[in-house]
């Protein structure tokens, strides 16, 4: 093993020239910190060991931190699980499946299945509204690159499941179709996002009144208090 003391130091000329190898420019601290905060918000990252009472602090920062992000991961997982259960129940109770259903299996009532799907749809719409609010905020702060695209993919997957479910009736289907388009466009945003791409999405949101329709969607109005 070579001992440090035995090493021939690098020649001064080489050392000097090596300093120019991938010489780092100055770091933009403010932009970097903003990006870190946005990404931590998006992923719900929290320092281990930190007491939950810090929510007061987050509340104080409310104007800078979108509400959606703090619960994004839990919500998305919850929606996915709920959807799977809801769609499973829906399919079990769907007509023309008599040959597949076992006579002794406990079958939930159609009303139970319908409620589960409505809850899943309502949560999806609420989540989508929060995400799109975050998207708009990112556009305004010119910080779209820090947007959690993975969350858009999850929402898109949920949206497609809902489109295939009985809950996508004549009233809700058009909204889900518009939402699918917007979410699909957001998932295509990458590191080399062009302003035109972002403008296309925001124009699509405005033209279709997607945000307004999300807020007044029928699936959200039919739920009992406290579901969302």
């Amino acid at each position: 093993m070579t001992q440090e003391g035995d090493e021939t130091p690098l020649e001064p000329r080489l050392r000097e020239l090596a300093q120019g190898y991938n010489a780092p420019p100055a770091l933009d601290h403010e932009a970097t910190w903003r990006a870190i905060e946005a990404r931590r918000q998006a992923t719900g990252s929290q320092v281990p060991g930190r007491p939950q009472v810090v929510s007061g602090r987050r509340k104080a920062r409310g104007s800078r931190r979108p509400v959606m992000s703090t619960r994004a991961a839990a919500w998305i997982s919850g929606i996915a699980a709920l959807l799977i259960i809801g769609i499973g129940i829906g399919r079990m109770t769907a007509p023309n499946r008599g040959d597949l259903a076992t006579a002794n299996a406990p079958v939930p009532s159609p009303r139970t299945a319908s409620t589960a799907l409505e809850i899943a749809a309502a949560q999806h719409l609420s989540q989508s509204e929060a995400y799109l609010t975050l998207f708009r905020a990112s556009v305004r702060s010119n910080d779209v690159d820090s947007l959690p695209v993975a969350a858009a993919r999850q929402l898109l997957a949920t949206n497609r499941l809902l489109l295939d479910s009985p809950v996508a009736d004549a009233r809700l289907r058009p909204l889900l179709l518009d939402l699918e388009l917007v979410l699909a466009e957001i998932t295509q945003l990458g590191a080399t996002t062009r302003p035109d791409d972002v403008k296309l999405i925001t124009d699509g949101l405005d033209r279709g009144d997607v945000m307004l329709r999300l807020r007044v969607a029928p699936a959200r109005g039919s739920l009992p208090n406290g579901v969302l």
């Binding site: 970097t32 870190i36 931590r40 990252s45």
Partner: peptide
């Protein structure tokens, strides 16, 4: 490099308890 700096601090905040 910018991405790496962000990722480093995000991981650090996540793992600070360790």
């Amino acid at each position: 490099a910018q991405d790496c700096v962000q990722e480093t601090f995000i991981r650090a905040f996540d793992r600070l308890g360790t």
